[in-house]
């Protein structure tokens, strides 16, 4: 961050110190040099309820007369839109085939529902019955939460030896890792089994705090625990 701060200090003629790139981007409204939008453009707000709340709080006044960037193609005001699912779709996507990726995920969700409904109907006990989660979106969120790691290992060279040093990770990175692991686990399958089906099983398993992905997370945590002695290499 330090060189970046220096650059911005010199460019903006202000003594700014940011220890986080994200905050920096937000504060100075940094734009890509080749962007079609100037720095005065703001991100579009495409959710109806967000817009309404902005009107209510008066926040809208700030951007009422400011040019707005065009909304992206996957920005929708649909009530069923979910930001995490959108992100996950983009990670599943290969070669820009987003429609296919979306179909795969929808199919997986349907499959999840079928699996869980079967479980729901097969449980006799009414108390247990209510505990069976059948909403695929909730299952997806739960699976993601269960697969997110809190630490990761990073190779750091000290005295000619590379140590695997446990470091804390940002929320964004851990979310990315969780999604990546889920997709990798779903792709590790028999060629006869379809991706959505395997994905559905992985998600259901992860939501129940078991399965391949959760194991992978736990393995990583265990290794971090084992390498705790190297932790000081992070700063020394």
């Amino acid at each position: 961050m330090a060189p970046l701060n220096m650059v911005f200090g010199s460019v903006l003629r202000k003594n700014i110190i940011f220890n986080n790139a994200e905050v920096l981007y937000k504060r100075v409204n940094l734009v890509n040099a080749y962007s079609m939008y100037g720095p005065q453009f703001v991100e579009p707000v495409y959710k109806k309820d967000k817009q309404e709340s902005m009107y209510e709080s008066g926040e809208i006044e700030n951007i009422l007369h400011v040019p707005v960037k065009a909304a992206r193609v996957d920005a929708t005001c649909s009530v069923f839109h979910d930001e995490l699912v959108r992100k996950f779709t983009n990670l599943v996507m290969r070669d820009g085939r987003k429609i296919l990726a979306r179909e795969l995920i929808e199919e997986a969700f349907e499959k999840i529902k079928r699996i869980q409904l079967q479980r729901y109907h097969s449980t006799e006990d009414p108390e247990k019955k209510t505990s069976v989660l059948t909403d695929p979106l909730k299952i997806f969120h739960a699976a993601l939460a269960n697969s997110k790691p809190v630490l990761q290992l990073t190779p750091i060279k000290r005295g000619g030896v590379t140590y695997q040093v446990p470091v804390p990770i940002t929320d964004k990175r851990s979310q990315f890792l969780a999604m990546k692991w889920i997709i990798l686990a779903a792709k590790d399958k028999d060629p006869k089994v379809h991706f959505p089906e395997k994905l559905a099983w992985e998600l259901v398993d992860a939501a129940g705090n078991q399965g391949k992905v959760v194991k992978k997370k736990q393995d990583l945590h265990r290794q971090c625990e084992a390498n705790r002695a190297y932790a000081h290499y992070r700063w020394s």
Partner: peptide
């Protein structure tokens, strides 16, 4: 039949969509 599970699908807006 618990086929519609998304919370939004119980709302008027969701049904309309």
């Amino acid at each position: 039949r618990r086929w519609l599970q998304n919370e939004k699908s119980f709302t008027e807006e969701g049904r309309k969509e």
